[in-house]
Design a protein around this nucleic acid. Structure first.
Length: 831
RNA sequence: GCCCAGGUGGUGAAAUGGUAGACACGCUGGCUUUAGGAGCCAGUGCCUAAACAGCAUGGAGGUUCGAGUCCUCUCCUGGGCACCA
């Protein structure tokens, strides 16, 4: 009987540093492909190098790490890389504020954050790191952009933007204060601006998630419903019809889009957006219109132009103006007025609507305000009215004989569109809410758009063998009202690749969402220099098996990433449709006061402080334990002490390990061990870290009640804990080897190279079971029975009826029936 | 307005339709002279002197032998989208 020597006090600081240094020195976690071994691509959204790792980073990364370590112990060859999303506006702002170059600021932050990352004790493989602001990375942004350009997927287009006429620049919504430019105070106007777009809309249909059960099975992808629904709503496919309305006394027509062509009868007026070109014809053309109306229309349209998008959205009450013209209703030939109103958007559909106040709230509101007609459309129910059953009809009178004198149109949207096409009044049309993605940024710190403007040849892409177009270092990046790169004249002036004449480089840079749309391909081999990534390696390592990240990227980043993947597939670079098989979205840790952590509120918990107090393992374990991974809850500064206590109890349990106790485990002990192996494994696999920890605690409570702990039990406990608390388990694992002198003159074996323990179902069967006895569904008694005996309902019933308590409840009553769920519950239903 | 996720003790939370509150924090009482982030024992949903009595998972109905879990309606919180025709 050999009781173990005490390990002394548990001092996480020393232990953790020792192991971190060793792992990093020995490149323990560098990923190498191994033939015949299943790879598992474990991905976390790449962080922005803000300069400080916060608790949210810890929460996501340490839990993703526990999952990765579990997969590794279970036999997968795990690929867990990381990198930095290093371009972007904050670097420029910080640079201006602190008079330091954006690049230097960014690289310094990356260095700081990597040293903070190191304290987590993750198995992140930094040898595959990708940093998006390096030329070796953004070269491939440029390559992809040019490929898209050649396919017509990147194009120069126009879109309404906030424009400051004095600074001559586009402003983001955040750059507008009170409708005025934050820099010069001029009134901001809406202007059509030329910019670079990516044609994501041409992938709209393939980006739609098939949310039917069959669809989910077919693509084999496990993404949360909130993301799938959210993206589908954002893409916003709506099927409907476009319908032509003739303008009275003129040749022109107005085309409207509607999803409810079945309500056509109820149209009492048309509304066009203030930007609609027909207004120009009306006001400036030779159309007959009285001066007063003309003035009103002109004033309304001009006022609308001055408003920013924000102003328009904030406006609550609908406004509008009568155009002075009428259109002809295609069914009744009645004249209906044409109005101009801001609530109709130029950017959606045809920029004109048919207003059906009786069946649309907005139209109703507008009709009420301006005293316009309201007409109800009546649906004929089956069998009535009269013989026209099953059709939509306009109002009419139902005569005694059952005749109907209303206007009859076919029922159902499909049929009515057919009917309209036949009459040449309209046709089916699909609209999307999704817009093409504007990727132009008039900023310095980003990927230069690899294009050249030539007066003779127009826009010409930079030849591929001249990539990367390196972002020049010496540039005046302070805001001056134009793209900063336009100030770097020697950089900008080039000769045209086509004609050799003088030309200028594009001075705009790419949106950073471009960078992050494909970084996980680059991780596979960040040095690869033939293509953005090696298609053969992608075939082996991709798609990503699990992608951890935040809910804030539901509509932006993850949708763009899917778009790039569809593009790569079309290019023949990959064969799969979706880049990530599974998406898991983390929750948020709030400040101890229950509010979002923020410097201004002063409720920020610094992970470094907590680590120096309790150690990284305790922080890791608490972040796993405190709540479900997807939940949002406040940080509880005292609750972590329970975790610390848990770790120390395991540490101290070491001296109670009795080697001779092996083979002497009671059936209960074996049951506990196998039950915990099963539960912790399932939980780590299915992203239920909180219950994985609590089941370890339960087992520890069981072990603590025993006098002898066997070596097998204790080692199993360490193995199960290893993915969650990698430092402490490694330390104890090594102490075994030292005290037993089993590895003399040899390297110590790391616990993280060990296999995950295997449980055996046969040990999960208990000799005795407790059966709950209910009477009319209420618990009245617990009876304990031999497992074998409990399989017989009659035996269980017999035993239950022997109980004095149950006898009392059954006395004088008739047992109508009884329900028995094997090994669990017996319910007597009595009258 | 539409879509999504939630609502369970003082707190964070558990619970394949089968004993609601595991595990942990906090709190209460006790023990151990105890400097250790102590430990150990007992208790801790409500109502009760107590209960293996009754009531309890936002609310109201329903399905079921049995509902936190499934269905219908409703209220509230968080997140996303939005004059999208």
């Amino acid at each position: 009987m050999s009781k173990r020597k005490s390990l002394g006090r548990y001092i996480p600081g020393t232990i953790e540093k020792k192991w971190r240094d060793k792992w990093s020195k020995e490149h323990t976690y560098e990923f190498k492909e191994e033939a015949g071994k299943e790879t598992y691509y474990n991905l976390v959204e790449l962080p922005y190098p803000s300069g400080d790792l916060h608790l949210g980073h810890w929460f996501t990364f340490v839990n993703a790490d526990a999952h990765a370590r579990y997969k590794k112990m279970s036999g997968s060859n795990v690929f867990f890389p990381n990198g930095f999303d290093a371009f972007g506006l904050p670097a420029e702002n910080a640079a201006i504020k602190r008079n330091i170059h954006p690049q230097d600021w960014t690289m310094k932050n990356i260095e700081t954050m990597k040293s903070q990352f190191a304290t987590m004790g993750t198995m992140i493989d930094w040898s595959h790191e990708a940093i998006t602001c390096t030329p070796s990375y953004y070269k491939w942004n440029q390559w992809i952009f040019i490929r898209m350009f050649e396919k017509g997927l990147a194009y120069r287009g126009k879109a309404l933007s906030n424009w400051c006429p004095s600074c001559q620049t586009v402003l983001a919504n955040e750059g507008i204060e009170d409708g005025k430019c934050w820099r010069c105070g001029s009134v901001v106007v809406q202007k059509e601006i030329e910019q670079w777009f990516l044609k994501i809309t041409s992938f709209a249909d393939s980006l739609l998630w098939d949310n039917t059960d069959e669809g989910k099975k077919a693509n084999g992808v496990e993404w949360p419903k909130s993301v799938r629904e959210g993206q589908n709503n954002w893409i916003g496919r709506s099927e409907g019809a476009s319908i032509q309305f003739q303008i009275s006394n003129h040749k022109s027509q107005i085309e409207v889009f509607t999803t409810r062509p079945d309500t056509l009868y109820g149209v009492t007026f048309l509304v066009v957006a203030p930007e609609h070109p027909v207004i120009g014809q009306m006001v400036h053309g030779k159309w007959q219109i009285d001066e007063k109306t003309k003035k009103e229309v002109f004033a309304y349209v001009e006022a609308a132009k001055e408003k920013t998008e924000m102003d328009r959205k904030e406006q609550k009450e609908k406004t509008g103006v009568f155009s002075g013209f009428y259109a002809v209703h295609p069914l009744t030939s009645e004249e209906i007025p044409v109005w101009i109103a801001e609530y109709v958007l130029w950017g959606y559909g045809t920029g004109a609507i048919m207003a059906v106040p009786a069946h649309d709230g907005r139209d109703y509101e507008f009709a009420k305000k301006y005293n316009l007609g309201i007409k109800k459309v009546i649906q004929a129910k089956n069998g009535q009215p009269g013989e026209e059953s099953g059709y939509y009809v306009g109002p009419g009178t139902l005569t005694h004989s059952g005749d109907w004198d209303g206007i009859v149109v076919p029922e159902g949207i499909g049929k009515i569109i057919e009917y309209l096409s036949e009459k040449k009044l309209g046709k089916s049309r699909v609209e999307y809410h999704l817009h093409d993605w504007s990727v132009s940024r008039q900023r310095y710190w980003g990927t230069p758009v690899p294009m050249i403007h030539c007066d003779t040849c127009g826009v010409v892409p930079v030849p591929l063998d001249e990539l990367p177009v390196v972002l020049p270092y010496e540039v005046d990046y302070a805001p001056k009202g134009r793209a900063p790169l336009a100030t770097a004249e020697s950089w900008q002036n080039v000769s045209c690749p086509k004609c050799g004449g003088s030309a200028k480089r594009e001075a705009e840079t790419l949106d950073t969402f471009f960078d992050s749309s494909w970084y996980y391909y680059r991780y596979m081999d960040p040095e690869y220099d033939a293509l953005p990534f090696d298609p053969q390696r992608a075939e082996r390592l991709m798609p990503v098996d699990i992608y951890f990240g935040g809910a804030e990227h539901t509509l932006g980043h993850t949708l763009y990433a899917r778009f790039f993947t569809k593009f790569f597939k079309d290019e023949g670079l990959i064969a799969f449709d979706e880049f990530a098989k599974k998406r898991v979205q983390h929750g948020i840790i709030l400040g101890p006061d229950g509010f979002r952590m923020s410097k201004s509120r002063g409720n920020v918990v610094n992970p470094d402080d907590v680590v120096s107090e309790y150690g990284a393992d305790a922080v890791r374990l608490y972040l796993a334990f405190m709540m479900p991974f997807e939940a949002t809850a406040p940080w509880n500064p005292t609750a972590i002490s329970g975790i610390y206590r848990f770790l120390r109890r395991i540490w101290e349990l070491y001296e109670r390990v009795d080697d001779s106790a092996d083979g002497m485990l009671s059936k209960q002990d074996v049951y506990w061990m196998h039950k915990t192996i099963k539960k912790v494994g399932e939980d780590l696999r299915e992203i239920r870290f909180n219950t994985a920890v609590s089941s370890l605690m339960e087992w520890l409570n069981h072990l603590s009640r025993k006098e002898q702990i066997s070596l097998e039990e204790y080692k199993t406990l360490l193995l199960l804990l290893a993915p969650l608390a990698p430092h402490m388990t490694e330390e104890i694992w090594q102490m075994f080897q030292i005290q037993d002198s089993v590895f003399k003159n040899q390297e110590f074996a790391s616990i993280h190279q060990e296999d995950w323990p295997i449980y055996d179902e046969k040990f999960l069967v208990q000799d005795e079971v407790v059966i709950v006895v209910q009477v009319n569904g209420k618990v009245r008694e617990n009876i304990t029975m031999e497992s074998a005996e409990s399989k017989e309902k009659s035996a269980v019933e017999k035993k239950a009826k022997e109980s004095e308590k149950i006898k009392g409840y059954l006395e004088g009553k008739t047992v109508k029936k009884s329900i028995y769920i094997e090994g669990k519950i017996l319910n007597f239903v009595v009258s």
